[in-house]
Simulated scan of single mutants.
Amino acid sequence: MNTKALIGILMFLLLITWSSKGFAKTAEATVTVNIRNSPSTSSKVLGVFPKGFKAQVLSSTGGWVKISFDGVVGYVKSDYIKLTKDSSTSNAVKSSTNTRQVVSQMPMATVLKDNARVRSNMSTSSKILKTLKKGSKVYVLARERNGWIKVKTLDGTVGYMAYYLLKMSTSHTTKISSRGGYDREAQVAYNGSLADRILGFAKNLLGIRYRYGGSSPSTGFDCSGFVQYVFRNFGISLERTAADMAATNGVRISYNELRPGDLVFFDTDGGRNYINHVGIYLGGGKYIHASSARGCVTISDLTSKYGTSFMMAKRVIR
């Protein structure tokens, strides 16, 4: 009996044992592996299961494990995964844990008036999600257009508040201006530890295929879908398109101020008048992005073709 067959049998027996003891079954990818629609290397590829990610195990057969990952149900080779007994380490729980850790590092604001309304959109006619008392605290997720701020309340409600209802915490180096935007101060705060974790997470997605409109590792990413997905896993909410990220999220910084984790924006059409591409700066003149030219998530140099069309940079890690 060859080694691969033996591993498949052992994993099958392990699944049965855990099931009988009531343990949840979770698979973690040891390398990035294809998810297929049947237990065969010749079957259709439905998506990918990235290295380091976890998925629910549904069943096992002949050296293959059936999983549910990111909305995709299919089969992966048992050689490329490891099983755990506790589903509490699933992606969803890991993500919520990351969110709890990062939320405490977000800028905060104090509500200035009683009956301050948190709305579903940037309009006084939009739905009221919550009413807050004077002195309440909220997390500031992003600067929005037209005098609105995207916030998260302490009970987790995410919505929009008019800028004049909020006063930013003085412990952060960004503040709300009278126009509802962010004013730059002498220094832009920077969280290096968080940046390291974000970049480590992003690098685990190297090689995931490019897909226009894509925002999932199982089916592929476009440039902004990749950036949004990475930061969302750390509790940081970004807009969906590169142009909207550049206009709305974070604090603008100069090229010379770039640090790992900053967002870099480009006009790849060459006209230098419209932002249509975004990546995450790694340091050393390199950045990670979902590249349509290379067909996958990759690392490029700022002196490359995309680099020569560099337009601006923004910092969202503070």
Rank of each mutant, 00 (worst) to 15 (best):
A243S: 15
A290K: 08
Y274T: 09
I253C: 03
E144M: 09
G147P: 00
H289N: 08
V158Q: 15
K137M: 06
T30D: 14
K130E: 02
T219H: 06
G8Q: 11
N98A: 02
K175T: 14
G180I: 07
N37S: 13
R179A: 15
K85F: 01
T99K: 14
K305R: 15
I280S: 02
Y212G: 11
V118K: 00
A29M: 00
T157P: 05
T241P: 11
C223L: 06
M122A: 11
V138P: 10
G213M: 05
M106P: 08
M245K: 04
S224K: 09
K150R: 13
G22E: 04
V230I: 02
D269Q: 07
G270E: 10
Q187A: 10
L46F: 01
M108Y: 08
V76W: 12
T174H: 14
K137E: 03
H277D: 10
F201P: 00
D262S: 01
S123D: 13
N256P: 08
S40G: 13
L58F: 04
K66T: 02
E144T: 04
K167L: 09
T17W: 13
K51I: 11
S42G: 13
I149L: 09
L194F: 01
Y210H: 03
V73Y: 01
V33C: 05
Y139G: 10
S300I: 07
R252S: 11
S90Q: 08
Y210T: 12
F23G: 00
L83R: 00
G270I: 03
V227T: 14
G147S: 04
S171I: 09
V151C: 04
N2T: 10
L302V: 08
V316W: 09
F53A: 01
P39D: 02
E185S: 11
K167F: 11
L258D: 09
S104T: 03
A246D: 09
S68M: 05
D155W: 03
L263W: 06
L199W: 12
V118Y: 01
A5R: 12
R294Q: 15
S193N: 10
H289E: 07
M108R: 12
N256I: 07
V45I: 13
S291V: 05
G261Y: 01
N249K: 11
T248C: 11
G71I: 05
S218P: 00
A116K: 02
I16L: 04
Y80A: 08
G261H: 03
F12H: 12
Y75C: 02
V118L: 01
S78Y: 02
K133T: 08
N233C: 07
Q228H: 14
I9W: 15
S177G: 05
S171Y: 14
M11V: 02
Q187P: 12
Q56R: 05
D222W: 03
S177M: 06
D70T: 09
V33F: 03
S90I: 00
Q105M: 11
M11P: 06
M168R: 14
A313N: 09
I149E: 05
A195G: 07
K44W: 13
H172K: 14
N98D: 03
T268I: 15
L238W: 03
T3W: 08
H277Y: 09
K54Y: 15
K94P: 00
G214Q: 05
V227F: 05
K305N: 14
K167D: 08
V102Y: 12
K21P: 02
P50T: 04
G159E: 03
